[in-house]
Amino acid sequence: MTAISAELQPLPARLAWFAADTWVVARRHVMRLFHRPDELLGTLLIPVMAVLMFGFVFGNALGAAMTLPGDEYREFLLPGLFALTMAFGIGNTTISVASDIRGGVLDRMRSLPMSPAAVLAGRSVADLLTAAVELAIVMGFGTLLGWHWHGGVGALLAAFGLLALLRLAFSWVGILLGLLVSGPEAAMKYFALLFPLAMVADTVIPTDLMPDGLAGVARWNPLSATVITTRRLFGNPSAPTTSWVAEQAPALAVAWPVAIIAVSMPLGLVRLRRIAR
């Protein structure tokens, strides 16, 4: 049978196996979604409900607070909800990793001659593919309700890139949490903690309208940088930037996710190795 030892090979061959293993694991997660498309629903319902709640129920009031008409507020809102969608994907990531540990699938993979890091990398690749679908759905829904992008194609692609980068950062945080929590039900218990993370940011209302202390926290929220920058890239209305953090938004929209990945990815890999102790 044609099978080659992974560890005795030179680096390029090992990288090739790592890439191949990562792709097989990513495909596994995508195939699971075809069997259980309802798993996407959990992540999607929140932004879709948020469009309805904030866009329509509170939309005119929030717009008035910002001296914007309701339909312009909805244009303002949607990029916030795109980033929120990226953030909420973390729930599925964490639950999936925790379930694989509990169910023994992770052990099966660790007993194979595959690259152990590919187990985690495959999950994050699958997260990116899933995020693209989720984003397309939320964007389609937003378009139905009057959201448009007014920039060029380059700006549009840059906005997609930033949202994907944000999702990648949340993916690695989710993977790390999945490796740390006691089980999938613990992951579900803490899901509600995502709401302050997603709302205390420039997502639904501009930080300037928040109480002073909270506004300071919200401005530094990694989501804010992505939201402010993508709003500009989509050519949607945005609040005037009154703080240093907001002025640095484009740089922070890259720096924040990169920093988060730089911390959570190595921690996740160390944690994976520690499972053998």
Partner: peptide, 9 residues
């Protein structure tokens, strides 16, 4: 019990 398969696939 040492290793499992994917239940959804």
């Amino acid at each position: 019990q040492y290793a499992a398969v994917d239940e959804i696939l």
